[in-house]
């Protein structure tokens, strides 16, 4: 990625070839340049700029209704920066690599899915164009949809139920730095969804996010999407993230929607607190409220869990979801997972 730049005759005494961050577990010189693997940061193929990495998650759950299941998924990342103004990225999921339900025997039924595939063309910090399939920039949680990055095994209902996770289209995005703080914007359209037979996901949207010097961050998102009957859904949301202390993280999101796929409006929110109680062990609590469309009953959920992060690329999670109903949406019970970023 970065070439060696020896300066002067004394350069031979000091290695001036930068290395990638992280402990090198494997490294070899090749005609492609230095090929190395770093834990949690992928395999980098020298001068090709190609990096291959990803994550894997094994999870299991036993719910209060008596059901149980488990599985193993693997997601691969491929990224490359062939020139300084172009960044290519793809995430490919091999889902349900191993899967089991109830007392049944595990079965292997791998399913391949391209989760994301896009290119970013950059002219400056403030003007970048993303083209392809990418995560919908609505709210905060939906932009880090990977088990090794999350504190609980389950997603909040407002992330899981209300909008489609991905967009296939284009997005203009960028960062500006008023007063040394960060203002990020994104304007996107999902017009290419037609090409992948998902016309119900056609839509346009915008997101604005401000991150202060102290780490406080607030965001606002809007999405208008076309229903199959030609009418439009409108969804608006706000979100926030705050680290009042190095060991404390507070976050939350709220959204409200009109004209959802079913009739009527919907709204919901979640608030989450994470505290490092002893080094590498985090206590996590999350409250959720979700009022589904079509006059569905409002749901209150509370998740309480423990996450152990022995090192930055490993994550063990155990959490329990409490709910006042035993329906499929609430799904209270015990969940656990183990994730490796590779």
């Amino acid at each position: 990625m970065v070439a060696s730049h020896p300066a002067g005759a004394e350069a031979t005494e000091v290695a001036t070839t930068p290395s990638r961050e992280g402990p090198e577990l494997f490294g070899i010189e090749s005609p492609l340049g230095h090929i190395d693997y770093r834990a949690g940061r992928g395999l980098h193929l020298g001068a090709t700029t190609l990096t291959i990495g990803g994550y894997t998650t094994a999870d299991a759950e036993r719910l209060e209704d008596g059901s149980s299941r488990g599985g193993l998924d693997v997601n691969f990342f491929l990224s490359a920066d062939p020139v300084s103004f172009l960044h290519l990225f793809s995430e490919i999921e091999v889902g349900e690599l191993v899967d089991w339900e109830g007392g049944g025997r595990p079965h292997v039924s791998p399913q391949l899915k391209v989760e994301r595939m896009y290119g970013d063309a950059s002219w400056s910090d403030g003007a970048n164009l993303r083209f392809g399939k990418f995560l919908l920039p609505f709210g905060r949680w939906n932009q880090v949809l990977a088990d090794p990055l999350l504190w609980t095994t389950s997603e909040p209902l407002i992330v899981e139920e209300v909008f489609h996770e991905e967009v296939t289209g284009a997005m203009l995005w960028g960062n500006v730095f008023p007063g040394g703080e960060t203002l990020s914007y994104a304007l996107y359209g999902s017009f290419l969804d037609r090409a992948v037979s998902e016309p119900e996901h056609d839509g346009v949207g915008a997101r604005l996010e401000w991150t202060g010097r102290t780490g406080v961050s607030v965001g606002a998102s809007y999405l208008a999407s076309k229903r199959t009957d030609g009418a439009w859904n409108h969804l608006g949301g706000v979100d926030a993230f705050w680290q009042p202390h190095e060991r404390v993280e507070l976050s939350g999101e709220a959204l409200v929607g009109e004209g959802a796929h079913a009739d009527g409006g919907q709204w919901g929110l979640y608030a989450q607190a994470v505290v490092e109680t002893i080094p590498t062990v985090y206590l996590v609590g999350r409250y959720e409220r979700f009022n589904p469309p079509a006059g569905g009953r409002g749901i209150d959920l509370f998740d309480l869990g423990v996450t152990w992060v022995p090192t930055y690329y490993l994550r063990f999670k155990v959490d329990y979801r409490f709910a006042d109903e035993l329906d499929d949406l609430s799904a209270p019970g015990l969940r656990a997972s183990f994730s490796v970023l590779f």
Binding site: M1, S19, F89, V144, L149, Y312
Partner: peptide, 19 residues
């Protein structure tokens, strides 16, 4: 490291290092 994990999810790596 948490921050860079989230960036890695988009193929963005931390600054290179020198010894």
């Amino acid at each position: 490291a948490e921050y860079w994990n989230r960036q890695y999810f988009y193929g963005v790596l931390p600054p290179a290092t020198l010894a």
